[in-house]
Design a protein around this nucleic acid. Structure first.
Lengths: 343, 343
DNA sequence: ATCGTTAATGGGAACGTTCCCACTATCGTT
DNA sequence: AACGATAGTGGGAACGTTCCCATTAACGAT
């Protein structure tokens, strides 16, 4: 008998009815008292019901609640891949921010395939997410338009298409700070590993770079701006290109830490010392770069803030036209990979 | 009017009723025909209903289905952190394997806090996952017991407690292969950065190391086995410890790529060349290690297979006593960080 | 021709919640 | 003392599915 009891407790789910019965009120009352969206009432009854609910170990059935409410309290996140540490950091920040507001973030990856964001979105929408957060925005993409047409709320993160609601880092500022840092160290010939043109993040950093050079009255040598992907290999190639020039740069600003790591490899391979022969700046401050043989000077991106702003944009019902793109400022983290230029 | 129509189509969800009405059958019939668990019937009606369903753009409401079925087709994954690339790889493999069986993997992180797996599990169980996959198992932990008592199906991945259903890599073999590789290159004094004792993965690799040395009739010098966490810094420290010995090793096997990267940093800082002065082997083959200045020799872990086996264990209703722990073999990937010992 | 067997169908009750609505009690106001 | 406003309560219908059950149709065997 006692066994049966505990057995029941273990398997059978405790519903709102059980709580209602135990408290001697109706299920409606319990539902209202436990509704986390309503202002928390502190009735005698309310307190008692809450106590009983926790004592009984009641947890709301999300399926039932979602079905009735028409909301799942779930946000879908689409990233190229989680093995890209930058994306993992973004996702962790988003997950944290979601849980603060009682929501849950689920993630799908596109595996870097260009149009795979559609599939990823489909799989997330099948799970009835309330909204999407995309970290895969490309300049020319019409995917946001499709989402709008389908009535799916979404926000772009880290990259923007310039039109959609977006929460991004201040890439222009970051690019400026990085370049300015190198200028302050006396560098005049600064190479840029520029990243792909489709990503707004990369483009912004390039603009910041140019702005800093202009301010310092330095001509922008187009040869010093080398395109790349965001991958490590590409960074290595770009570094080789820069280093094989006749009047080669004394410093390199890489569009992200991955390309910086690739550049570092290549420079080492070429027998150049960092920062002895050449200074190097990355971007993102992924955990590994502070532990490299030469800890990397880089820009720390406030992922937590970017995540908060993204959710904030989702929550807001109306958004002023000039507030559609939230921009969070990065911080320069000087480490060992940058030094005063040798004369 | 026409506007109203399209507007309705856009917002109002298409239900099984709509499909039934359009096909002139009952909702029960539609439900049965679209049930993906039943063998796909190819009636005249079945084909017609399926066609109409896709034409209308019907997608099953997961909340309603979950509520009624009592299953969510969702698997919860708990990892220490996704910024650990190994864990990101595992999660991506699990997500892929889940989607193959029509399920979805959601993830929660413990942020490396020892008992945070309870919280993570709680947050996942709140979302009514059907099962859990844990990559956080510790030797002495009673968390699995708790889960069993609560009747939550679970499988351990990458690490095992020796009792629970588990899908792991063959760490002993991996350790053996790594060490054997170094032995084959003529190394006799091989240092080991051993990892924390609570993780079965680390312990297995240590055993493999010892086995290889024993086979080669080499005494195991306990000083050559240095404990560590799985972190980069810790790898650096351990490498320093090893290199500061009077009769120091000519090769180091690091328990994972992170510690190997730390070790590489430290060795470089100490002015030692890899593999010129010292050979180095890592473990896991995370993407970055093939792009380091010295591409790292390491062991590739078959994450996809480990993920499949984990889901397989979840699916199996009964499991033979000797089949509770599935073991997948890793592969040695020789790169530039290991070379024949200098005489 | 009749019977039993199998296969396909539709009606309707569940799953656990939320939310609309009607109802009662309480309170301050005139 | 009577009144309207306000707050709290409970009944019951929804949300979209699945699944049990009863019914009908089809078919081969006797």
């Amino acid at each position: 008998m006692a066994v049966d009891e505990t057995d029941k407790l273990r398997t059978a789910r405790i519903t709102i009815h059980d709580v209602a019965a135990a408290a001697g009120v109706s299920k409606s009352t319990v539902s209202r008292i436990l509704d986390e969206r309503l202002p928390q009432s502190d009735n005698e009854t309310a307190r008692r019901v809450r106590k009983i609910a926790t004592d009984l170990g009641y947890v709301r059935d999300v399926s039932a609640a979602s079905l009735r409410r028409g909301k799942t309290m779930t946000v879908g996140v689409i990233v190229p891949r989680l093995t890209d540490t930058v994306m993992a950091m973004l996702y962790e920040s988003l997950a944290k921010a979601c849980s603060r507001s009682g929501r849950f973030a689920i993630v799908a990856t596109t595996d870097d395939r260009p149009k795979a964001d559609r599939l990823a979105a489909e799989s997330l929408l099948h799970r009835s997410v309330d909204a999407l957060i995309l970290a895969t925005a490309r300049e020319d993409d019409d995917f946001p338009t499709i989402l709008t047409e389908r009535g799916v709320p979404y926000v772009l993160a880290l990259r923007t298409d310039g039109r959609s609601l977006s929460s991004v880092g201040d890439d222009r500022l970051g690019g400026y700070l990085a370049t300015r840092h190198l200028l302050d160290l006396g560098h005049r010939r600064i190479g840029l590993i520029a990243g792909p043109s489709y990503a707004s993040s990369g483009r912004g950093r390039v603009e910041g770079y140019k702005q800093a050079l202009l301010e310092a009255d330095i001509n922008i040598d187009p040869d010093f701006v080398v395109g790349s992907t965001f991958g490590i290999d590409s960074g290595a190639e770009a570094a080789a290109t820069l280093m094989n020039m006749k009047n080669r740069p004394t410093a390199i600003f890489a569009v992200n830490d991955n390309t910086a790591i690739g550049a570092l490899s290549m420079l080492t391979k070429m027998g150049l010392s960092v920062p002895g022969d050449i200074s190097l700046v990355g971007y993102n401050d992924i955990p590994i770069v502070s532990h490299l043989p030469t800890p990397l000077t880089t820009l720390r991106v406030p992922f937590d803030q970017i995540a908060s702003e993204a959710l904030d944009l989702l929550a807001a019902s109306t958004i002023a036209e000039d507030d559609r793109i939230r921009i969070s400022a990065p911080t320069l983290i000087p480490r060992k990979s940058t030094a005063r230029v040798k004369i």
